[in-house]
Design a protein around this nucleic acid. Structure first.
Lengths: 227, 227
DNA sequence: ACCTGAACACCGTTCAAGT
DNA sequence: ACCTGAACACCGTTCAAGT
């Protein structure tokens, strides 16, 4: 609508890439397509970002800033030491909500090779919660590694089909062939499959599984630090 | 040396790709470079594998077959229910040894979108150990998801610098700038850094951290199933 | 049955050039 | 200061063609 040309900035480039990824997947994010999204030539982007890696780092940073907004900042207050657990848990489940809005994000984050400033501040806040809760820095350090990607609200599934529908189809065909060699899995599918019902994610209810694994770790950490 | 030309097979293609990745990283694995490794043109590969994704699936399958050899097969024997924990732990730490021989493997596995037959048989054996140890299929199912990539012997690190040396340099420069905003991390580094010594992986001893997280989960699972 | 050559569409990125 | 056009090296992949 407007005739005036808004000048490009780093952040407009990042935002455009996020929108593109939300709409068409992270694979559709190329220098050329992001530029097109902004009504500009591909080479213009290089004036604002060093290269594609820097662009993708910026995309991740943008997502964590979205999380920061959601949380109303990374600052926290702890009145009692016992509060670290619900505080950490709530923060992580909020991170998960952000990730669920950008389903391509976990795979992207796993390919990152350097930390972004916002990410560091977020992780610092999680560590801060543990320390305020009575953890030593040493145990806090181990805890952060044990949580791993769960800090950001996603579980590292070993295989994540692009399209859950298509993946399920293919997997089932393959499972049928391999069935004789997979006695326990077949039995598990038989026993667990028809129990679900309200899960929107097929017979694996990822939210419940995420929380199960998260609580296993949080309970274990609680025991490590008080025991 | 030999004048006779060994005909190409799927498995020779996969093996060549593994060797190439070991030598030059997974980024160096292209259809053209794998073909060159085999003294053949790139297009010849398409006679044996459907496309590059299939090739990479085959590479992963090859690694898990290496693990199978190491374990002397995926079969297992459990005399007492209590044995599930050391059995599972040992199997996972063996998987980790295989991964340490192929440091590019975790990143590759994380990009996979479909299971491979050997991988399925391996995971089936882990599930079988749990069930033989007294787990219900339902709890076993949750346990497998909670373990996630740890089943294969690697931890879901959020950022894994390509070159640990280079990564450390850059990170430290960035940490210095951000230090005022990262009070807890700076404190942690100060307290934990000079404790290490025999760690070959910098001030983060990944092996110890992996085992800490693994045991946290195994202990938690033990409690879930007997409690 | 197995391999090849030429060609295509698509990348990220450079560089000198425009305004 | 900000953006562009043309060009380069490199991908995965096709297709018809060779032996």
């Amino acid at each position: 609508m407007s005739e005036l040309r808004i000048p490009l900035t780093k952040h407009r480039v990042f935002d455009a890439a996020v929108e593109l990824a939300d709409r068409s997947g992270i694979g559709a994010v190329t220098m050329r397509s992001v530029a097109a999204e902004l009504g500009v030539e591909a080479m213009s982007l290089y004036y604002h970002v060093a290269n594609k890696e820097a662009l993708l780092d910026g995309v991740v940073d943008t997502l964590i800033r979205e999380l920061e907004d959601e949380l109303g900042g990374f600052e926290f207050e702890i009145d009692e030491q016992a509060e670290w657990k619900p505080l950490l848990r709530g923060r992580i489940l909020t991170a998960r909500e952000v990730m669920l809005r950008h389903p391509w994000a976990p795979a992207l984050i796993e390919t990152r090779v350097r930390m972004t400033p916002t990410m560091l501040r977020y992780l610092d806040s999680l560590l801060g919660i543990l320390v305020a809760g009575g953890f030593s820095y040493d145990l806090g350090h181990y805890a952060m590694h044990a949580l791993g990607s769960r800090s950001l609200g996603f579980n590292q599934e070993l295989f994540v089909p692009d399209d859950p529908e298509a993946g399920a189809e293919e997997s089932e065909a393959m499972l049928a062939d391999l069935a004789p060699q997979l006695p326990h899995m077949m039995q598990m599918i038989a026993e667990v499959a028809h129990e679900g019902g309200d899960s929107t994610l097929g017979w694996c209810d990822y939210q419940a599984e995420f929380e199960f694994g998260l609580d296993l770790l949080l309970d274990g950490l609680e025991r490590s630090h008080s025991g």
